[in-house]
Design a binder for these strands. Structure first.
Lengths: 207, 207
DNA sequence: GTCTATATGACGATAGAC
DNA sequence: GTCTATCGTCATATAGAC
């Protein structure tokens, strides 16, 4: 990923190894959080996925909550990278649709952690994590801008509060309809994305 | 609820007490499953809520899974009772909207258990529970009938597969947008219901 | 820093007195 | 059938050797 590390002061081999190991841990954690919930994912799962001893995890992260918070920050980074990569001159509504499409694809690939559920002990930790909060605000601001833009153009319903639109878009990243349809086996992944995308933007009622 | 018990052969006081205790356990379990997930709810929670010893729970239900399955069946019964209480001559789409409205109100009151999540050990147990499966099929058939009816009338988008519509309606019973908006504190419960209902049926795009 | 081994605590489930 | 007390298991986290 990071092929342009030369400007950084050179890292010792030890530090590079440390960093690489930590990246591997985070990568496995992101994957596992996409497959199961925070509560059911265990540190043994992570250790086995990375291929190191469980105790070694605690040399990098002081608790399960801290590890998963770091993973969530990494996920947020990917979202920001995706948002930043969208063409400037794309209409606002198309950017919103592209975002939802991308979220659904991540969800189908089990790469996107479910949003922290209400009673998870992870939630409290995340709300105290400045990097997470800052990232979440940055993402929300960017999307919120597109929402108001699309509403000004009259393509997104201007009567809906932007916050409601934002949350409705966010919720697609953990939409259970995706797994229902997936388990049914009747539709391809591409079909599922299109169907959920359509019900999200066009609604169930006929037009 | 059941005021017409006279046709049943008379229950001994002991049996009545047994039944009453069991109803209380189920009632508390339904409430708790509305507040937290299956995995985070403990048998101690249930025992404390009912006001009995944990061991006593196991005289009524042989396992946590069996207890929660029975609770889910009870919830399904409430759904069926609600569906059956809807006026016969109400247009199909209005029945669907009434169902979603009711689901959202239950969710706001924390009375509706979240749908069994993907990796919960409850899921497997539920799929082996005939009463649950039968109830789920009955509910789905009833709603499916209204969906095709509304599609034939052209008020629900006829291009959407009925199964997609059904799942989209089901998913409102655990829509995270509700708790997001609730925690934001900007909207009343009634506002939240109307906003989610509108985005569900009318979509985000302007009409 | 990595490992093996273990401390600590939570929770589902059971034993046995009453 | 209800209780108190306890077992067995599993998961987080730590101790201590290397």
């Amino acid at each position: 990923m990071q092929t342009m590390q030369t400007p950084l002061p050179k890292l010792s081999f030890k530090e590079q190894m440390h960093q690489a190991r930590e990246d591997a841990i985070l990568q496995s954690t992101c994957q596992l959080l996409g497959e199961k919930a925070f509560d059911t994912m265990t540190m043994d799962d992570v250790a086995n996925a990375v291929g190191i001893a469980k105790a070694s995890l605690y040399k990098h992260f002081s608790s399960k909550e801290e590890l998963c918070s770091a993973a969530m920050v990494q996920i947020l980074g990917r979202v920001q990278a995706f948002l930043g990569g969208l063409s400037e001159d794309m209409p606002a509504q198309d950017k919103l649709r592209a975002l939802v499409r991308w979220s659904l694809e991540r969800l189908l690939a089990k790469e996107m952690p479910l949003l922290p559920s209400r009673n998870s002990s992870l939630r409290a930790q995340l709300m105290d994590n400045k990097a997470y909060i800052d990232g979440l605000i940055a993402v929300s601001d960017q999307i919120g801008q597109w929402i108001t833009e699309a509403q000004a153009q009259g393509v997104i319903n201007p009567e809906l509060p932007p916050l409601v639109v934002l949350y409705t878009l966010y919720a697609r990243a953990c939409d259970p309809v995706v797994s229902f349809l997936k388990e049914g086996g009747l539709y391809s992944d591409a079909d599922i994305v299109e169907l959920v995308l359509r019900t999200c933007f066009e609604g169930l009622a006929a037009r």
